[in-house]
Amino acid sequence: MSHDHDHDHDHHPEAPSPVEARALALESLLVEKGLLTSEEVDRIVSMYEHDIGPMLGARVVARAWVDESYKQRLLEDGPAAVKELGIGYPPATQLVVVENKGDVHNVIVCTLCSCYPWPVLGLPPTWYKSAPYRSRMVREPRTVLEEFNLNLPDEVAVNVWDSSSDVRYMVLPERPAGTEGWSEEQLAGIVTRDCMIGVARPRIPAESAAR
């Protein structure tokens, strides 16, 4: 349904749910008042479904892995560095990229609402916005990470970033061993959304490792 957003509400096969009816009632008022058009709704939906997503953050990470001076610029000034790659970053929020190292693992959360670096990762997954994740990540990060199949050794320190201000955080994961000589495009292919939230680490697919 999400990939062919049809704005023709009048031909809905079933009666709308109460919340849907409320949303559509408000929408029609805003349209009447000239504050919104259905084209704008379609444009905004399409932007999040097709143009803005974790593939942007993955390009940033891959560049940082192959270009040490880019990585330094990225850690210094996130918005400027992502703009270098032609990725737009709106002025309303800041972007701070936090780097995973052998002995430090970073992970992001927003306990008070659901702040998320959407210009580089797209919209957050439902679990990121859920009460279990918001309540537990600051208190028992290792147990939560195990639920994502990420088991961190005791000697790795966990840094949790609770995004409470206009600053959005993104994790720069460690480049995995065995990716020497890979192109930026290949590298971007193993950087998932979850790696940049910090609930996963990049993994080399079995067939590449075997080559």
Binding site: M1, H5, E20, Y48, E49, W127, P132, R134, S135
Partner: peptide, 25 residues
């Protein structure tokens, strides 16, 4: 919610869509 007990395990939906219903968009 930070630190509150009682919300259970994180429920991870694989390959979830950006919007689950058109009204969310």
């Amino acid at each position: 919610m930070g630190g509150t007990h009682g919300f259970g395990a994180v429920n991870i939906e694989r390959d979830e869509p950006v919007f689950h219903h058109p009204w969310e968009g």
